[in-house]
Simulated scan of single mutants.
Amino acid sequence: MRQIVMVMVAVIVFSFPLSIQANDTESLHTWKELNHTSDQILQLVKQEKFEEAKQLLDYFSVMFLEVDFQEEKITMSSLRTVTGSFEHAVEAVTALDMPLDQRIYNVTAFRLAVDALSSEHHPLWLHTEESVMNALSNMKVAMVAGDSQGYQHRFNEFLRHYDMIRPALLIDIEPQHLQKIDSQITYLERMRSEIIDKDKVVPHLEVMETEWTYLYSRGKEDSADPSLWWVMFTIGGMITMSLSYVGYKKYKAEKQKVRGKE
């Protein structure tokens, strides 16, 4: 019985990737190419090769328009988001006096949006957790210390991170969740024009930290590859069946021994 179970497990483990490969359609290849091209554009901008980056953006545009958006079930909201981030990326490589860091931020936002649209698992925006959470933490530290100028500086830093990942969030998370985050940020922006009240800001920042922690943890759960879970549950079920059978056989053998002695 144990040998049979092991054979079944082996068949499942080795045949499952083959079934995935069989479903690797031309559409999947196109999305991989789009994702790869957006990454190349970002690398070129970091190297200040703006003309080459512009050429790749033109190539991306042509390739992207060949996608059957209805067939791919891409929503109008997601399409507008990617189009908007694309326009900002074009501006980043064609502007004459834009600072390099702002160019990189714009193109990174485009890169994250394309990845969010094309990747079913492990989107790149999840890797921004440390920088975003650090920015929130630094805002709270500055406010607790009464450092108003430092708080404003950290707030600007947080806003830059948020503007960079917001297009990807528009694609990946529920609208009501994003609206909640937007309203929390709007509240802090309104308080900038007033005398900042530490007793109001600090608790609000703690709520935001909780919200962002939940956002990233939820994103990690949603990005888990269901095929991996399927394999784990299947193999786990087979192992459980094997152990149950072995235990049952041992129980019967022990019972027969007792009967023999009697």
Rank of each mutant, 00 (worst) to 15 (best):
residue 19 S to N: 14
residue 209 E to A: 08
residue 120 E to P: 00
residue 68 D to W: 12
residue 66 E to I: 13
residue 31 W to S: 11
residue 27 S to K: 11
residue 97 D to Y: 11
residue 126 L to A: 04
residue 230 W to R: 15
residue 96 L to G: 15
residue 92 A to M: 12
residue 51 E to S: 11
residue 83 T to P: 10
residue 33 E to Y: 08
residue 48 E to S: 15
residue 113 A to P: 10
residue 43 Q to K: 11
residue 82 V to G: 05
residue 102 Q to M: 13
residue 7 V to D: 01
residue 76 M to S: 07
residue 109 A to Q: 08
residue 166 R to H: 05
residue 19 S to Q: 15
residue 26 E to P: 05
residue 40 Q to S: 08
residue 257 K to R: 08
residue 82 V to R: 05
residue 35 N to F: 09
residue 223 S to D: 10
residue 101 D to L: 15
residue 55 Q to G: 02
residue 29 H to P: 04
residue 179 Q to P: 14
residue 187 Y to N: 10
residue 27 S to G: 08
residue 155 F to G: 01
residue 136 L to Y: 02
residue 185 I to N: 05
residue 111 R to Y: 12
residue 135 A to H: 03
residue 191 M to W: 00
residue 19 S to H: 14
residue 140 K to R: 14
residue 131 S to K: 12
residue 200 K to L: 04
residue 41 I to W: 03
residue 187 Y to L: 14
residue 127 H to L: 07
residue 116 A to V: 07
residue 10 A to F: 00
residue 144 V to K: 14
residue 174 E to Y: 04
residue 137 S to R: 07
residue 251 Y to N: 03
residue 201 V to W: 01
residue 152 Q to D: 05
residue 154 R to F: 00
residue 66 E to W: 13
residue 237 G to C: 13
residue 44 L to R: 03
residue 178 L to F: 06
residue 181 I to S: 10
residue 141 V to C: 02
residue 219 G to A: 10
residue 114 V to G: 05
residue 198 K to V: 01
residue 158 F to E: 01
residue 12 I to P: 02
residue 188 L to W: 02
residue 189 E to I: 06
residue 194 E to D: 03
residue 152 Q to R: 14
residue 31 W to R: 15
residue 92 A to Q: 07
residue 148 S to H: 08
residue 118 S to P: 11
residue 138 N to M: 06
residue 24 D to Y: 13
residue 181 I to L: 14
residue 23 N to A: 10
residue 34 L to I: 11
residue 211 E to R: 08
residue 123 P to M: 08
residue 25 T to I: 08
residue 33 E to N: 10
residue 139 M to K: 07
residue 61 S to I: 06
residue 255 K to I: 09
residue 28 L to A: 09
residue 259 R to F: 10
residue 112 L to D: 00
residue 170 L to N: 11
residue 175 P to F: 02
residue 171 I to F: 04
residue 125 W to I: 02
residue 45 V to L: 11
residue 4 I to N: 12
residue 99 P to K: 12
residue 262 E to L: 06
residue 233 F to P: 03
residue 153 H to Q: 01
residue 194 E to Q: 09
residue 150 G to Y: 01
residue 68 D to Y: 10
residue 115 D to V: 01
residue 237 G to Q: 12
residue 79 L to Q: 06
residue 216 Y to I: 00
residue 16 F to L: 12
residue 39 D to R: 05
residue 58 D to I: 15
residue 114 V to H: 05
residue 239 I to T: 10
residue 36 H to A: 12
residue 70 Q to D: 13
residue 172 D to K: 11
residue 152 Q to P: 07
residue 162 Y to I: 04
residue 203 P to W: 04
residue 128 T to V: 09
residue 228 L to A: 13
residue 108 T to Y: 05
residue 208 M to R: 07
residue 249 K to T: 07
residue 25 T to E: 06
residue 42 L to V: 01
residue 107 V to W: 00
residue 106 N to A: 08
residue 86 F to D: 00
residue 112 L to M: 06
residue 208 M to Q: 11
residue 231 V to A: 13
